[in-house]
Simulated assay, not measured.
Amino acid sequence: MKKSPIMMMLCIVFASCQKNDVASPGSDSPKPAANVESITVTTESALKSAISAAKAGDIITVSGTIKLTSTLQLLNSGTSTSKINFTGGVLDCSGISSGWGVKCNGSYWNITNMTIKNAPDCGLVFQYGGYNYVYNVTTSGNHDSGLQIYNQSHHNNISYCKSNDNYDTQNGGENADGFACKLSAGAGNLFDHCTANHNSDDGWDLYGQPYTVKITNCTATNNGYGGSGDGNGFKLGSSGQNVPHTATNCTSSYNLASGYDGNGNTGHITITGSTGTGNGKTLFYRLY
């Protein structure tokens, strides 16, 4: 049966409309994130290659345990809407001769669900950059602080992390805190639902930190077991400073020294809903 001219014209118009529904290259229509990589790595060389090439939206997953022989450096940055995702596994830093285990100088990283252990210095350090999110990361057995933020690094959110058994053998335990945000870190750093247990110095150390740090729902226990460690649950600043740090709904118990120590910081430190017991010196000390 032959189609009438009117029917043929309608078919042509319909086909044209169907074709125009597909976004053309360079158009403003949403496109799939074709360049985003999802990579699983099992060796140090593959891990470092993936990290050095990382871009916004990538997912880098560690499978099993990778033994590092040099510091893993996170130097690239994601974006506010598309972070770089680094997750899973265990990073054993015992093969590193000196230095940190993992250093992050980039911004907009999600670091989640992993263990970083046995570094000859700090386990995980945020040195520059900001807007990084750390979730369910354990730092243990490192020879300085487990996780440290300093030197301008800002707006980092550390949540549901654990830091334990960090001990600096070279100094008799004087410097290895569970968590440290000190020595000129930037603004906007937050710790939430984190636990520091059995570290040789303090659970948290904010020594020399010029901007307010918020600590919420965190727990510090049994810190100060090193011969030279101070052993405070939460050390909230240092002498000569006037910085209003906050500790909200925290618990500090069985630490060698005090539960919460202002350490000479004359800023109005706000302790709200925070408790503790069994500390060697007292619960609240030098708070203004």
Rank of each mutant, 00 (worst) to 15 (best):
L124M: 03
H155P: 00
D201C: 03
E174H: 07
A247G: 07
F234D: 09
Y128D: 05
G264M: 03
Y288V: 02
F284G: 05
K235F: 03
K31T: 02
A187C: 08
W109Q: 01
V22H: 15
I269T: 15
N255K: 01
W100G: 04
C161K: 01
K48G: 00
T212S: 14
C93Q: 01
H154N: 12
T248A: 00
Q73M: 05
D165K: 10
C194M: 12
K83F: 09
G259T: 13
L287K: 04
L190K: 14
V125W: 11
K2I: 12
M9A: 11
K214V: 07
K117F: 15
Q73G: 03
S258I: 12
W100V: 00
T87Q: 02
T169K: 06
Y260C: 08
T248P: 00
V90W: 10
T221S: 10
E37M: 15
N242F: 02
N217C: 02
H143W: 08
L190Y: 15
N85V: 07
M1H: 14
F86E: 10
K235D: 06
I96L: 04
K214N: 15
G267I: 12
G172R: 10
G276C: 07
A247M: 10
V213S: 01
K103S: 04
T43A: 11
Y133A: 12
G141V: 00
T40F: 07
N157M: 01
S77R: 05
N199H: 14
A53I: 05
A34I: 04
S140N: 13
C161H: 04
S70M: 01
G262V: 00
Y150L: 03
S184L: 06
T139S: 12
L68Q: 13
P120E: 13
S253N: 13
T272I: 09
I51V: 09
S184C: 08
A53S: 00
S258G: 12
Q241S: 07
D144S: 13
F191K: 14
S80T: 04
G233D: 09
G26N: 12
F86S: 02
I111T: 00
I269R: 11
G89A: 11
C161P: 01
H154C: 01
V90Y: 13
L124W: 11
S140P: 10
G188F: 06
G64K: 15
S80E: 06
D21R: 09
A56Y: 07
G264D: 07
S107M: 07
K214Y: 07
G188D: 04
F179M: 13
N222Q: 10
Y150G: 11
V125H: 11
S253R: 13
S27P: 14
G173E: 10
G262E: 11
S274P: 06
I271V: 08
Y160F: 03
G99H: 13
Y288T: 11
N232W: 05
S184T: 10
D201P: 03
N156M: 03
S163V: 07
Q241H: 06
L72F: 14
G264S: 01
I6G: 03
N223C: 08
G267R: 07
N232H: 10
T275V: 01
Y133G: 03
F126G: 04
N35A: 04
S24H: 12
H198Q: 08
G280Q: 03
T42K: 15
D168T: 06
A50D: 11
N105M: 09
Y133N: 09
G95E: 14
V62Q: 09
N197T: 08
S80L: 00
T43Y: 09
N171F: 06
N279E: 15
A15S: 12
D58S: 11
P244F: 14
G208L: 14
L91W: 05
